[in-house]
């Protein structure tokens, strides 16, 4: 018994354990998603997250300990964002021809994402400080948190809302867009990137490389637009 405990003490203090567990949980979720032909509800982020949440709570592992291992995966978000240049380059001719629709969709999609979230939550009686944290929910993590912080919101709450928006977006985007009958993968991908940042982009890459490319651009452009929009629109929206 004490031998087992010594092993656990060793493992729980090395990044190796939680890095390996993170990758295994993802592999299970991703294989299930592949097996179910990338069904929207089999979203690999959603299912990896609850599996890991359950493991952490059963082993009473604090998030800080978990993150010491998982940070290596988290770190790759930066290089992965840079890597978006490769599909962008490969599709550059199609992208260059789509600049006017992209700019229009960015302005309208980005504004609707921010304004509708704040107005709906306000109508449902959500307090003002939470509304500020909610406003940048469609924009990629670090940017959203910076926006919330600069306007007096709570960046931790924004992080939660940003990730939740991404998962919700990634799940609903395919069935919702199938209902509209639009088959243009540029439009579908771009709208997903603007509304649901990187998690939406991950979903778009599951559907098609072209959708993923446009989604990456949408995400990148909304990271420019939302920090400009939030300080302009929030004072008008908040009562």
């Amino acid at each position: 018994m004490s031998q087992d405990f010594a092993l656990w003490v060793y493992l729980s203090h090395t990044p190796l354990l939680w890095l390996t567990v993170t990758i295994c949980a993802y592999l299970i979720a991703d294989r299930a998603s592949l097996y179910l032909q990338r069904h929207p509800l089999a979203n690999p982020v959603l299912h990896s997250v609850w599996i890991l949440g359950l493991v952490l709570s059963l082993t009473q592992t604090p998030y800080r300990t978990y993150f010491e291992g998982a940070q290596f995966v988290h770190f790759m978000l930066g290089p992965a964002t840079v890597a978006l240049a490769v599909p962008l380059y490969a599709n550059r001719a199609i992208v260059m021809r789509a600049i006017p629709p992209m700019l229009g969709a960015l302005l309208v999609g980005g504004t609707v994402a921010l304004v509708s979230a704040v107005l709906i939550a306000q109508a449902l009686g959500v307090p003002k400080d939470v509304l500020i944290s909610l406003a940048p929910k469609s924009v990629t993590g670090a940017v959203g948190m910076a926006v919330a912080e600069s306007m007096g919101g709570d960046p931790a709450l924004t992080a939660v809302l940003v990730i939740s928006t991404g998962i919700i977006g990634a799940i609903i985007v395919t069935p919702l867009f199938n209902l509209t009958g639009v088959t243009d993968m540029r439009a579908r991908g771009f709208a997903a990137g603007v509304a649901a940042h990187g998690i939406g982009t991950a979903r778009a890459f599951q559907v098609s490389a072209l959708a993923g490319t446009f989604s990456g651009i949408g995400m990148g452009l909304n990271a420019i637009l939302t920090p400009i929009l939030a300080p302009l629109l929030l004072p008008l929206l908040l009562k």
Partner: peptide, 12 residues
């Protein structure tokens, strides 16, 4: 790309 959002998701 989905894998890379998992650590932040667990934070949620």
């Amino acid at each position: 790309l989905s894998l890379l959002f998992v650590p932040a998701g667990v934070g949620v």
